[in-house]
Amino acid sequence: MRNTQMSKKKRRRENMWGMLFCLPCILGFLFFALLPMCTSLYYSFTDYNVISRCNFVGLDNYKNLFSGTDPYFSKALWVTIIYVALSVPSSLIVAFCIALLLNTEVKGKGIFRTIFYLPSIVPVVGMSAVWLWIFNSDFGLANMLLKAAGLPKCQWLSSESTVIPTLVFTNLWTVGSTMVIFLAGIQDVPRQLSEAVEIDGGGRMAKLLHVIIPMMTPTIFYNLVMGIINGFQVFTQAYVITQGGPNNASLFYVYYLYREAFQFMRMGSASAIAWVLFVIIMLLTVIMFKLQKKWVYYGGE
């Protein structure tokens, strides 16, 4: 009897402590995640523009986006999808290859790992200035090198057809953070499995295809999901390097959203744009989680 009373008292005390320790982050979740989500949904049905009164307009903001009244919406969506479709697979493949190289018996592994990781901590604004200069079509280093090699000039950032590939290329510069995660995963692949392939007379290729890649699918999946979520939110490069140009060829979705909200002060329609992004990312994530059953291997199941 006394015992249960004690434990009840203890329970209550533990609940109090738990609540107290988690209080900051509970408040953070309420004020910086839940509440903003709800208010932005509400604003997306209004014509709020900060200055005049806020009127309820029903689905008008969404209709404007999908009917093509706002021509930039489909452009921005399309540009961003192409960027994601090019940058996510390319960075995953490059990161995976570097991780494979670093997983061999090389000296100075730690130094190489640091060098490859370094670019991902460099401030994007600072790097954007450097890319502007390197890919300048008249005087940049990239064209200087092409010329030295006897190749024709490229327009890089100043042509509609090359601006996205150029930005995809600059994104490859920061694959180090993904690579480090792959490397950690590869090092965790059980040795017996690779040895089993060796005993069966399989070479490097067999080891890669039948052991390393299947065992790495959870890590690949994680990097794929995060890559897509982050790819849809590219902003700084668009703002600093291209300002969405030339001719809106790099009008990234979040840059378009920023313009709508903070340059034109159309908070209502910007909130609708934000919610469409949210739904797209949610749908993609759900689809990927559904599809993962077909290709992601979780050991021990």
Partner: peptide
Amino acid sequence: SMMLPAAVTIIPTFLMFR
């Protein structure tokens, strides 16, 4: 909330601080 795109919350958060 880790999966929540920052772009979605930035407008209402800005309006709140404003």
